[in-house]
Simulated scan of single mutants.
Amino acid sequence: MAFDYIAEQLCERKSQALFRERFLISNTQDCRMTVDGVSYLNFASNNYLGLSSALPNTSQAGSHSSPLVTGYVQVHADLETYLASELGFEACLLFSSGFSANSSVLKTLMSHAESEIFQDKLNHASLIDGGLAAKAAMTRFNHNDLSHLSRRLLKSKAKHKLIVSEGVFSMDGDTAPIEALSALAKQHDAWLMIDDAHGFGVLGQHGKGSCYLDEGIKPDLLILTFGKAVASSGACVLCSREVRDYLIQFNRDYIYSTAMSPMVAEITLQHIQRLFHADDLRHKLTSNIRYFKQLCNEHNIALMSSSTAIQPVVIGDADTTLTVANELKKRGFWVGAIRPPTVAYNTARLRITLTASHSQADIMSLVNQLKQLL
């Protein structure tokens, strides 16, 4: 059975008295803390100077230690529970960054010798790095090419197979065929992992992301980052309870990193609750994307096949791309110049990202500058 090693290794940890558990800290003050209603003198914190109590009437800025020591507090539990419930997963685990979540989940989960990772060639660097660090074999399939992926899966002798894709690709702005990827995963007894950094908050029902279009497709692992539409920082992995427990035991990034700031977790929870009710802002963003594409078409500015907020204008030559981006800055417009190795050679581009905050006048001004410079 695919991924049966997860349950086996969890049982082994328990039998050896090595099973790691998180203790929920309900209150911390100076050198005291409360767990399950019992107050303790805390001799496990890294809050060496006691500065956490220096700012009254504010949320706790630091968690003072890893989640497995004394860093796991009520607001972390609240955020994890809320996300798992709203998105229909059994469990959720918080990370301090999307890069850490992506790379560490792959190198931890795909640790079995009979494993193989199948990655879209345009996946984010954090996913590629995680795959390279894993003990599993790693195969890359042509971008959104289901036939190529299917052939790779058919050739695989691996017992444990994981398909990995972004929901919205960060440099091209196009979307993954998640429903078809899910069908292929089931056909080949594989798992599916989606990194929805640029889809969460923007796409799907109530902004729940790329996996929640129409009836929705729930992958085995869903990575969300909070530094994009959520306007906060950090990330999470949504998964089964068994996978969550496995990551708590073996994910070195999670075990040995200081937990997410409670203040950040509180802000993130508030922003996500607001985000799920922000259909008006999503409609505004959609309108802005449509307006930008319309103006570019009218002025013969070639765009890539993207209907998302990421609208790349491929120039090709890196030097010319940088020159155009710098000229735009002189005229009051800040646009990213994306060059190799982030993108393929001869595909250097301006990466234009639209928001609901832009006015039509803002967008028209940008397009007029692009027309002059290009």
Rank of each mutant, 00 (worst) to 15 (best):
S156V: 08
L49V: 11
R22D: 07
G336A: 15
S115Q: 06
N300T: 11
D245G: 10
F95C: 02
G199M: 07
K157W: 07
S52F: 07
S97Y: 01
D220W: 08
Q360M: 11
H277N: 09
S59P: 13
H112K: 07
S147Y: 12
G209Y: 02
T34S: 06
L247Y: 03
A7M: 12
G130I: 14
C31P: 11
S39R: 09
I163G: 01
R13M: 06
Y291W: 03
L322Y: 15
Y5G: 04
G62M: 12
I217H: 02
S287H: 13
I25N: 07
G37L: 04
S65W: 02
R244K: 14
S59C: 13
D214I: 11
S305D: 13
D174G: 01
S126I: 03
G98F: 05
R244H: 08
S240N: 08
D362I: 02
L154S: 14
A344T: 10
I223D: 06
E242I: 04
I310T: 01
E116S: 09
V164L: 09
A259R: 03
V313Q: 02
L222E: 10
I178E: 02
E298A: 15
L322M: 14
Q119S: 14
L370S: 03
R274D: 07
F292Y: 06
D214H: 13
L10E: 08
K218N: 10
A113P: 14
M364Y: 09
I128F: 14
C92V: 06
L192I: 00
S257V: 08
V202K: 01
L366K: 05
V243I: 11
V69F: 14
Q311E: 00
R339T: 13
R290N: 15
E8W: 10
Q119V: 15
K284G: 05
M260C: 12
T108S: 05
L49G: 10
I194F: 06
L93G: 03
R282K: 10
A197D: 13
S111I: 12
N123W: 10
T308V: 00
L122P: 06
V335M: 03
V230G: 02
I352T: 00
A91S: 07
D189E: 09
H277A: 08
D145E: 09
S65V: 05
L213C: 12
L51P: 05
H358N: 05
R152Y: 11
F333W: 15
T347R: 05
K228N: 12
L269C: 00
T258V: 15
K228L: 10
G88W: 00
S85R: 12
L87C: 03
L354A: 03
A197K: 14
T58W: 14
I194D: 05
Q311T: 01
G130N: 15
S156M: 09
L275R: 02
L127A: 12
I248P: 07
S240G: 11
S53P: 01
M193E: 01
T320A: 15
S365C: 07
G332A: 04
G204S: 09
P341R: 01
L94Q: 03
A2E: 15
F43P: 01
H143S: 05
G37S: 02
R290Q: 13
S115D: 05
Q311S: 02
A183M: 14
S59Q: 14
